[in-house]
Structure formats: C-alpha cells, structure tokens
Design a protein around this nucleic acid. Structure first.
Lengths: 140, 140
DNA sequence: TAATTGGTTCTCTTTTAAGAAAACCAAAAT
DNA sequence: ATTTTGGTTTTCTTAAAAGAGAACCAATTA
C-alpha cells in the first residue's frame, strides 16, 4: 500500500479497516491500536478521504465518526472517467507542445486513442458488472 | 509525474525524453542538460527502466546507449494482465484472512469480480486497438 | 599497455516527509 | 457556564529519501 503513495500510518489504517471484523473503526480506536499520535491518524485519514479510499459516517446523530474503506468509490464511473480524460488530455498536450510530427508523436496519438476507447468501453463493462452484482443480490 | 512515484530527477528525465524532438537522449546529454550528478541520472534511469517506462538502445554497435520513453511497454497485455491479477489476488487474500462473511467481504468479492472481468475484456480492447493502429499505418 | 568513454556503486550530505507533542477549537454533555 | 469528547492545526524532531562526489569498473580506443 505504501507503494501506491500512502504513508506508513495511512497504509496501516487502510489495511486495518479492511481486515477488521466490522470493517470500520473510530478515531480513538486507531490511535489506541497503533499507539501513534492523534495528528498522525488525523492527517492519514484526511489524506485517505481526499483520494476516496476511506470515508466517514456518523451513527445516530453522534459527533463521533466511524471510518471505513470506500471500496466502490475508486471504481465509480465518474472517478475512472475523470482519470482517463486527464490522462489522454496530458498526452494530447504533449503532442501539441512537441509539434514534431514524427513516429513518437504517432505513438502518443495511439495511446491517446486507446484511452479514448477506454472512456467508451469502461462504462459498458461497469454496466455489465453492476448487473451481475444485482443478480447475485437477488439470489440471496 | 512525481505523484506517480517518480523522484524529481526521474520525473524530469521522463518529461525531457517525451518532449525532446528526437525523443531520445544519451546519459551525458541528460547530465549536462539538468546539471545533476551522474549518480542521480544513473539511479533515475535504473528506476525508470525497471518499471518499463524507459528503455535503452545502442546504435550501430556502440557502447553508448540512447534512452527513450517506452510508451507501449506500459500498455502491453502482459504488463496489464500481471497487474490486474496481482490486484484481485490481493483482494481474494484479504477475504480469506477476514473469514467473516459480511457485506464488506461481499464488496471485496464484487471488486475482485470486476477485475476478473477486466482481465477478460482488456485483451479484447487491446486487440481492437491494435487493429485500428494497423489500419492507420496502412493509410499512410 | 595506457588512456578514454560510458556508465555504476559507495559513502556522505542535504532535503524532504512523517510523526510527536502540545495547543487549540467546535459541538455536545454536565 | 464549564467540562468532556472528537478531532484539527501548528511547531518541532526524527527518520527516510534524494542527490553529490569520488572511487570504481568494464569496454573501447589510442
């Protein structure tokens, strides 16, 4: 998890939330469990929330928040589409800057094209995926 | 580029190689251009090569190597498949460890399922992508 | 054989990021 | 109105990563 840009404490929190029986925990629990400072936990959570990896809910109008892993947030059509567009826009910008119409610009264009295909295909796959999930729910 | 785990020098080299007219450069050129140490360039290149972002060729049997961005390496079926499998294997391992058969385990299973779909679908998309590229080449 | 080229590797310094500790703050409870 | 709870923000320390510089090494070339 650290290899995907998480700090050690953030990585531990993420894994902890995944593995814990109730798949959620309070701020205090994590401070106690890891024996680290409140600031470390606060900053780690802030970061994890900002990248949609974790989110927080309150239960019954209490101020205390329960943090949990937000698995599906990372796979929302919106999130993926935004990232795909950002990527091919970057490639297209590079081509514009380079000007040169050589083989490498051709490659950039190809990869850009691949991402444009992905932008179209991913929602279709997600659609089918959601249907299989719905089906699974029904069977229960 | 730094946000995807590159060191500053590695990021600069990658961008430099992309934007340069000939889309390639020698070790010496980069040391001169950035005014950094040989070790910095050496280590950055070693890293970029290890993640298939850059590769090196020699020209005409010379010892000197020309480094260039390896765009397509990151989009090879093999590379993507390996990463997709690694991801859903991780999810499946987490489910095994958790044991608990609750809603969160269900979510993990769903995401794992999505990646298994991806493993099947991505090669099809890449196949179609390659055909559109081949078509483009023909027209030239 | 000696010198040069094209790097690599090692050790050391500097820079940056992570985390601790304490102060702080707003909401809720007393 | 004061205290407690559930954090956040700020400042400082420590630890880790990036890079410098020199030594080194294997191919080439002279």
């Amino acid at each position: 998890m650290e290899s995907m840009g998480l700090t050690p404490v953030a990585a531990r929190i993420y894994i902890y939330l995944m593995l814990s029986e109730e798949h959620q925990a309070t701020f205090e629990q994590m401070v106690d469990y890891f024996g680290v400072s409140k600031s470390a936990v606060s900053n780690a959570l802030k970061m994890l929330e900002s990248v949609k990896m974790v989110d927080a809910k309150t239960i019954g109008g209490q101020r205390k928040r329960y943090f949990s892993v937000n698995m599906k947030g990372m796979f929302s059509e919106e999130y993926l589409s935004t990232r795909i567009k950002a990527f091919y826009n970057l490639l297209d910008d590079i081509r514009t800057i380079r000007k040169a119409d050589d083989d490498f610009s051709g490659e950039l264009e190809d990869i850009s094209g691949l991402y444009k295909m992905m932008l179209f295909e991913i929602p279709l796959i997600l659609e089918r995926w959601k249907r299989t999930i719905a089906l699974k729910q029904q069977r229960k």
